[in-house]
Amino acid sequence: MVRALAQRGGMPLVQQTKLVTAASELGRNMIVYGGGGTVRAALVEDGGRSGVWVEFRDEGPGIPDVDLALTDGWTSGGGMGLGLSGTRRLVDEFDLDTSPAGTTVRVIKWNR
């Protein structure tokens, strides 16, 4: 769905790949740590620029220490520790809201 929106919006292949990689990581986190959830995505425009907005929402336990979770090299599992911090670098806008009632991450990748 994310790649199809990026293609429909005329996003170049490199930008598509960055967005799809970020979406894949956030989707995986939503399933593994949040127990599943919902994903919404749309083409967006702002001031003459266009892009793709994607939201990941779960009702899991939340992220206890956001600063730590966004630190390169830190992992809560057996991975390389590049999940959230790497995802944040792949997109142009990154917004994370978390509480014990769940986590919502919204990203935008602008067309370049």
Rank of each mutant, 00 (worst) to 15 (best):
L68T: 15
G48V: 00
A69L: 04
T98A: 03
A101I: 04
T87W: 05
A41S: 13
E55C: 01
D65C: 05
S99E: 03
T103W: 07
G62F: 09
G36M: 08
G47I: 15
Q16F: 10
G102T: 04
D72F: 15
R88K: 15
G36E: 04
P64Y: 07
V20W: 09
R57D: 07
S99I: 02
G37I: 04
G83M: 05
Q15H: 11
G78E: 15
T75D: 12
P100L: 09
S24T: 11
L90E: 09
Q15I: 05
T38N: 13
D67W: 01
Q15R: 14
E55I: 00
A42K: 00
V44Q: 01
P100Y: 01
T71Q: 13
R89M: 09
I31G: 08
T87K: 09
A42P: 01
G51L: 02
A101V: 09
E45D: 11
I63S: 06
V52R: 00
G73L: 05
T98Q: 05
R57L: 11
V32W: 10
V32M: 13
G48F: 14
G27N: 06
T103D: 01
V66D: 09
S99C: 03
G48D: 11
G81H: 01
G48R: 05
G73N: 12
G60C: 06
G60F: 03
T98P: 03
L68Q: 13
V32K: 12
P61M: 07
V44E: 08
G51H: 01
D92F: 12
V66Q: 04
E59L: 10
E55T: 00
A101M: 01
R89W: 09
T75W: 00
V39R: 04
L96R: 08
G78D: 13
F56V: 00
T87P: 10
G73K: 07
Y33D: 04
P100N: 08
G47S: 14
G35Q: 06
G47C: 13
L96C: 01
P64I: 06
A69R: 07
R88A: 07
L26V: 04
E93I: 02
A41L: 07
G36T: 06
S85V: 12
W53L: 10
S99A: 08
S76H: 15
D92P: 06
T98L: 07
V39I: 10
S99Y: 08
N29C: 14
G34E: 06
A23D: 02
E45R: 12
V52L: 02
P100D: 00
L96V: 09
L82P: 03
R57Y: 03
R40M: 05
S76L: 12
E93N: 03
V52T: 00
D58R: 03
W53Y: 14
T87V: 14
R28S: 10
G77F: 15
G27A: 09
L84C: 06
L90I: 11
T71S: 04
R89V: 08
P64W: 10
D65W: 08
S24Q: 06
T98W: 11
W74N: 14
V54H: 01
S24D: 10
L68K: 15
V44S: 00
